[in-house]
Design a protein around this nucleic acid. Structure first.
Lengths: 259, 259
DNA sequence: AGTCATCACTCGTAAGGACAAGTGACGTCA
DNA sequence: TGACGTCACTTGTCCTTACGAGTGATGACT
């Protein structure tokens, strides 16, 4: 019986009505929305129109639809996992990362050889088609069930200069840093954060619900002269985890890294 | 004429076929896909099925559809803007942020009073329903046209203790930091990064295309005793900009901030 | 009492038709 | 030649119909 007229298409009016009801709390989180049939009579529209409205709310991430059960208001809970992107050194000089403890490997790591893409080449300051060692892992946090895809990329050039690396390039990142430091490198890191919608394979591997973006962190390890040594990538569903950084003020105005 | 059978639904088979053609480069970026009518005859399916397949590719962010023109392969270009989340201090003690130079205000800032939500309360380590000053800005980078929503939240309690703040709580963030430092606070910051799908108002304000997540950074300024003083939030389309952080190794293993 | 078939409800898939609305090119008319 | 109307093409919206498939409760049969 609710009546509407304002905006454009019918299905958008229906979607707007349901959206308001959700945001105003009229439909509580995790509660069941009216069925398609009920919405049809409620707004006096056909089933495609109702389904179109529901599809819009799905892509906004407002609702979850379960086959045979109905549509549920998504509980917009905060991410349960906070990934602190910090790196520490023990007195023995080993590297420790707060995330190192929590992840477990869901599968055997997969090692391979590949070449730089436009994206990874830019981060590593290499041309395209440069040879790299790659290592992919699928990680799980047993506490929350959060999944993440992890990738390590090391240029041939770097691995060859550090014998311990060439033998076994698929170590955990902290171990690689240790080896690089032993080889005389003075490490700092730059992280780049992006978000994108998952492709079907990412959706499956990370077990993502509808309308869930992927957060993508690329951590580049630099030598003291700012030349990149390796790349570490992490991807996970933005519904499960968030990133945390600590910032302190530089003493002098730093100059731009990209002039 | 392309024939397929494997996975589940018809429209998913069609979507998979087009997706492969795009990812393999058969359909180049920015090129025009076959029209719905052509796809109907190509795969011998009805128009709803074709539209369903296209809708799937839209939510994956693979294509853009323009009314009256057709479907175009989205050029998955890297973000054009890199936001370096760094804070420096000049010799006079003023705060300088690399992003400070680029943004222009698209509208007058909007000042208001509000209360903590569950989300902002957690970040500011306050209960719910605590009083805050708020200030919203819509920012534009004239170089790339990138838009961003900026928000500053300052607890009453903090503003009252710092007279210069209470008078004009809607200063630029760097100026607020300066005032806080003048009042004797020793500032450090913690940033939290998340991503989510935009609601219609965010989509409109940021002028986002389909299937574009919003990156959300929350920067909390802490006093030396780790107590939060204020919150600065920034949101923007993940297709236009990325975040960059610099990390150096702590000398000792830092203890967790959230025990 | 326990097991299992049935049924009624949900959403998912697929087809058909019809018309509206945006876009650009072509051709006519002044 | 120039301006403008028309037309063919595109996607957008909306309806009707039909059946498949997942879920849970009900009830009958063993």
């Amino acid at each position: 019986m609710s009546e509407i007229q304002r905006p454009g298409a019918l299905y958008q009016q229906v979607a707007a009505a349901i959206r308001e009801a959700i945001l105003s709390g009229e439909f509580a989180p995790d509660s069941l929305l009216p069925s398609e049939a009920q919405l049809m009579t409620r707004y006096a529209v056909s089933r495609p129109t109702v389904r179109n409205a529901i599809a819009a709310l799905r892509t906004e991430g407002l609702i979850d639809v379960r086959h045979g059960k109905g549509s549920f208001v998504r509980s917009s809970g905060q991410p349960t996992l906070t990934l602190e992107r910090r790196i520490s050194r023990t007195r023995e000089g080993k590297f420790v990362m707060p995330t190192g403890d929590i992840w477990q490997e869901a599968e055997e790591p997969h090692t391979y050889r590949t070449r730089t893409t436009k994206s990874t080449g830019r981060l590593l300051q290499l041309g395209e088609e440069e040879a790299l060692f790659g290592c992919d892992r699928l990680l799980i946090d047993p506490g929350t069930g959060t999944r993440a895809m992890h990738r390590t990329l090391i240029p041939f050039e770097v691995a060859e200069a550090v014998p311990l690396l060439g033998e076994e390039p698929c170590k955990p990142a902290a171990a690689v840093y240790w080896v690089l430091a032993q080889a005389g490198h003075n490490l700092t890191w730059t992280e780049t954060v992006r978000a994108h919608m998952p492709l079907p394979d990412e959706r499956a591997a990370l077990q993502l619900p509808d309308a869930t973006p992927v957060l993508h962190v690329a951590r580049v390890a630099h030598d003291a002269d700012e030349r990149p040594l390796m790349l570490e990538e992490l991807r996970f569903g933005a519904d499960r985890a968030e990133l945390a950084y600590r910032i302190t003020a530089d003493k002098q105005p730093a100059r731009r890294t990209r002039p």
